[in-house]
Simulated scan of single mutants.
Amino acid sequence: MTAQDRINDYWTGRAPAYDAYQQRPERRAADEVAWSGVWKDALPAGPLDVLDVGTGSGQVAMTLAGIGHRVTGIDLSEGMLERARAHAATAANAPGFRLGDAVAPDFPDASFDAVVNRYVMWTLRDPETALANWIRLLRPGGTVAVIDSTWFTDRSELGFYDEEIQAALPLAAATSIHATEKVLRAAGLHDVTVTALDAIRELDETFGVAPGHHVLTQYLITGRRLTGRP
Rank of each mutant, 00 (worst) to 15 (best):
L64W: 02
P44V: 06
T175C: 12
P105K: 03
L51I: 08
R27V: 13
L51W: 02
I74F: 04
G100Q: 04
Y21M: 06
D5I: 04
M62F: 12
L169G: 09
R185Y: 06
T55P: 05
H213S: 13
V50F: 03
V71T: 02
R229H: 14
D41M: 15
R224T: 15
L189K: 10
L203Q: 07
L220T: 03
V33E: 14
W134E: 08
T153S: 14
E82H: 15
A42E: 00
Y161A: 07
G142Q: 03
R125N: 11
V194D: 06
A88E: 09
V215D: 08
L197G: 12
T206S: 13
A17E: 15
E202H: 12
L184D: 01
R139K: 10
G66W: 00
D75M: 04
R139W: 04
A20V: 09
G96H: 14
D126V: 01
R85G: 02
A89M: 14
L226C: 06
A42N: 00
I7W: 03
V53W: 01
A65M: 00
A172P: 09
N117S: 13
P25H: 12
Q218P: 09
G228T: 11
G79T: 00
M1L: 13
I165G: 02
L137H: 02
A94V: 04
A94D: 07
V116K: 04
M121H: 09
A3K: 15
V103N: 11
T12Q: 09
V103R: 10
R136F: 03
A20Q: 10
R6T: 05
T227C: 10
M80C: 06
G228N: 15
T206N: 13
D5C: 12
F112T: 03
D101L: 01
L138D: 04
G54N: 08
E164D: 15
I67V: 01
P16L: 09
L76D: 11
L184G: 01
R14N: 14
I177R: 09
A168G: 11
A167Q: 14
D162T: 11
A94K: 04
G46S: 00
A61I: 07
F112C: 01
V116H: 05
S57G: 06
A45P: 14
A173Q: 12
